[in-house]
Design a protein around this nucleic acid. Structure first.
Lengths: 315, 315
DNA sequence: GTGAAAGCGCTAACAT
DNA sequence: ATGTTAGCGCTTTCAC
């Protein structure tokens, strides 16, 4: 009655259904799994579980998975378990319950890649262009976004007046964004001055410190900043406020990601929009396809970014 | 060798271990589960999966679970599946894999409560004081926080000059916070004027709209606002900026939750701190205890709140 | 210290 | 249209 309703007489089905309800019968998922080898659980391994960015990504993944009747198990253990006997994600029995795994890799992590390789699980990599024969990828078009933002800054400023304040130098996104910034300047025949491209951490504190140092050194000059993410941009914005530098008149700032934070600060942050929930949803979509046809060649989906101009930029 | 290493000779164990490595043997979790009836999966059912608040809660839960060697499965399906044949969380086979479930209930939801009752699973309820005999609860001390905040406002303002702009009226937290606000005023012998307590939604937009209306109506008067959460407070802050009302001189604002957003805006938001990650961690802790001793009486943990004064309040 | 066997609850294949 | 049976891979118990 449960598995092949078509094969059973309606009257019998009704009687059986009644018994099911009366007894509170629930199929045992373990026995089911033992037979079918089918799983309804997708793993999502993130560098961190917190903050607007990952939270939105997770939401996108969850929505997409739910539509397919699957569930998402998040873990932020990625790469933390360097030693093989560590009780990390890869050694936990949960791995055996997963139908597939989406991993976000934001910086070089040989140990993690090695673990993934010997997993023999449908795999989708987010962010890092890990080249496996049957691994799919979800990428974000950092280059276009950073280029567009840099050009927006250069419409009203000289190449010597714009700065990139990124996150960690090893971070794939930051490094792509930084490179696009540099390329945009180079394509106009400009060199990169000292301090014009700086790397730090993805938080308000670093943005504030770097912004303060930068603005102090540039008293009287108009300045443009492309930040590695929104939080850094907010830090720079705070630095400007604390130094009495007017935004966007004296200082223009463009953030990256366009999280909800961008519209919570004043002036509202101009930012390169990254479709975070689409990243999560896309990863799940690719994973589902791969589970369906495990042998197909690795696909790469690159999601577009888009500059959103708000109050921290001006013509 | 895997299950009872003590019972096997070291030399044999080594040989077996070698074979395990060579063959890449991994115990089948389903077969294991079939025998042991043990699970390493905890469910976490949230009203929403997104935003600083839930994301921090999830992180706390995840950290605590990981320490115990368990994993957390989040779902934001809560209560959405009203019809019994809906493919919602409760009808998914995943429920059978859970060792326990933590549910956050933020407003009355009879359907959800009914579903939970017939689940026969170790249960922890977050936020709503659902009274089941063997159900544990994690509560936040909204009353103290709201009282403390209201009193802070009243140190420099009259009872007629302070306002509560909450989230949805049905929301348990908002209603507790609002009640404490009213009680604090009442305890000083003051009545509640029209519009002095307002309910809306938990977002910046509503805070902005309500703030604008309020401030327009109170031109020339000093005003104090206790917001239902940080986002509403940010909305009010933006309303003040757009009307040229000086904060904290003419308008004082206190947010609720103290998410990271509070320190990202300028001036930085004074707010009642809610230990979000502790809520998640506490729920998992209670759940683990209940799994250990399913028969024990329901425990309630009430987590303290604390007023954090920043730039939107003044003496 | 090691091996053997029963059986967990289900699905799939086959027999009726 | 319905009933029967083997066996998924493990743990547990018992025999050696």
């Amino acid at each position: 009655v449960i598995n092949t309703p078509a094969r059973v007489a309606p009257e019998t089905a009704a009687r059986v259904q009644q018994a099911i309800d009366r007894l509170g019968y629930r199929p045992n998922v373990y026995a089911q799994g033992l037979m079918t080898r089918r799983s309804h659980l997708l793993g999502l391994l993130l560098p961190d579980i917190h903050g607007e960015f990952y939270s939105e990504l997770l939401r996108g993944a969850d929505m997409e998975a739910r539509q397919a009747g699957l569930h998402v198990l998040v873990s932020s253990d990625a790469g933390r378990s360097d030693s093989p006997d560590d009780a990390g994600f890869f050694n936990s029995n949960i791995v055996g319950m997963l139908a597939g795994l989406a991993v976000m890799i934001t910086e070089p992590n040989a140990a993690l890649v090695r673990q993934l390789e010997r997993l023999h699980l449908p795999l989708v990599v987010i962010d890092k262009d890990l080249t496996g024969p049957r691994t799919d990828r979800v990428l974000v078009d950092n280059g276009s976004g950073a280029r567009e933002a840099t050009e927006a800054l250069l419409r009203t400023m000289n190449t010597a007046d714009v700065f990139f304040l990124g996150g960690p130098e090893e971070n794939f996104d930051t490094s792509e964004r930084g490179r696009a910034f540099i390329d945009t300047l180079s394509s106009r025949g400009a060199g990169i001055g000292p301090g014009q491209v700086q790397y730090g951490t993805y938080d308000v504190e670093w943005g504030f410190a770097a912004g303060k140092a930068l603005l102090s050194a540039r008293k009287g000059y108009r300045t443009g900043v492309l930040a590695g993410n929104d939080e850094i941009a907010v830090g720079v914005l705070q630095a400007a406020a604390s130094l009495g530098v007017s935004v966007p008149r004296e200082l223009q700032i463009i953030g990256f990601d366009d999280t909800r934070i961008a519209s919570m600060v004043r002036p509202q942050l101009s930012a390169v929009h990254v479709p975070m929930s689409e990243v999560g949803a896309g990863a799940v979509r690719l994973l589902l396809q791969r589970i369906q046809s495990p042998g197909s060649p690795g696909k790469t989906v690159t999601l577009p970014t888009k500059l959103v101009l708000r109050g921290t930029t001006a013509d």
